Amino acid sequence: MTEKTQKTYSKIKLTSSNYYSNEANWQYQSVSIFKNFMKCEAAALAELKGEWQPERDQTPLLVGNYLHSYFESKEAHQDFLNEHGTEILAQAGKNKGKPKKDYQVGDAMIKSLADDETFVNLYQGQKEVIVKGQIDGINWMGKLDCFPDNHKYFADLKTTQDLHKKYWLSDQSRYGTFIEAYDYPIQMAVYQELIRQQYGAEATPLIVAVTKQDPPDKAIISIEQPILDFWLEQVKEMQGHIQAVKNGEAVPTHCGHCDYCRATKKLTGVVDMQTLLIS
């Protein structure tokens, strides 16, 4: 059973310029913030409040944005190049002025998709479309990579190491795909629901995955509707407590293992060595 939360309506008008802002993240729930709370409520809340900034390698994110901007529009890609030129191009050495290795991989991924007729035909329509709605009274927002005019599907670009790499899913005690490991079914389920509310359409989510291998591998991947339905119900079950934590109405739990938990940990006494095996 979820905790009772107040139904509030957001006043901010979402745009491409404020979608990733802290203000938007306070007024709307998003999949990325939601997944952060799933991992560690204490760390997610501290980051949202500006009290904690985790150290992250920004290169994978930037390479992903490099890929996304290319297929968004020529203008969007040029804007990205203008803003991140120093990160993209080597600034010294024999390769000065040339793209760094990670962006050479990005170029290979772009070429792999751009030269593929099936992808080109699929990836037609509006790009970076903001969708919003309410799930059981809680405000949600999302951004669609590609949304065709017929609203029959939406496509989401993902980069990954290897399409066939197996990931250990500790909560299920089994191996799974990268799609399960990164909780992409949650994103697809939420976006499908927001499209249903905003457009009255039953859109099928399609993940367009391209790998960082040389040469890249690629696939268009669907997720069975019962899985999407399951995760939408899970979101409904979990979101009340998460919203209560965001609102200061519930105390956040600590996962005990992340950077934030280790950095803020206080010794409380002696523990039995067997407890070290409990994850």
Rank of each mutant, 00 (worst) to 15 (best):
M38D: 10
D57K: 11
G50C: 08
E75T: 14
E47S: 12
A24C: 10
G50V: 09
F37G: 01
W52G: 03
S32F: 09
A76G: 01
A24I: 01
K74L: 11
S69A: 12
K74F: 09
G85L: 01
N65C: 04
Q91H: 08
N95C: 10
Y66L: 06
V31N: 15
G93M: 09
H84C: 02
S30L: 08
I88P: 01
E47G: 04
A44L: 07
W52C: 06
K49V: 03
E41N: 03
V31E: 13
V31Q: 12
S73W: 07
A44C: 07
N25G: 08
I33V: 14
S73C: 03
R56G: 01
F80D: 04
I33P: 00
E41V: 05
G85D: 01
H84Q: 05
G50Q: 08
G64P: 01
A92H: 15
L89E: 02
G64N: 09
L62P: 02
F80L: 09
C40I: 05
A76R: 10
A42W: 02
A76K: 11
E55K: 15
R56D: 07
F37C: 06
E72N: 09
E51S: 06
I33F: 10
L81I: 14
E75F: 11
E87H: 03
K96Y: 10
D79I: 12
E23G: 10
W26M: 11
E75H: 11
E83D: 14
L81C: 07
K94F: 13
A46T: 10
S69R: 10
E55H: 12
P54W: 07
P60W: 00
G85Q: 07
C40Q: 03
Y70R: 11
Q78D: 14
L62G: 00
F34E: 04
K74C: 04
N82S: 13
I33M: 15
F71E: 04
P60Y: 00
A42G: 08
E75L: 13
N22G: 12
K94W: 12
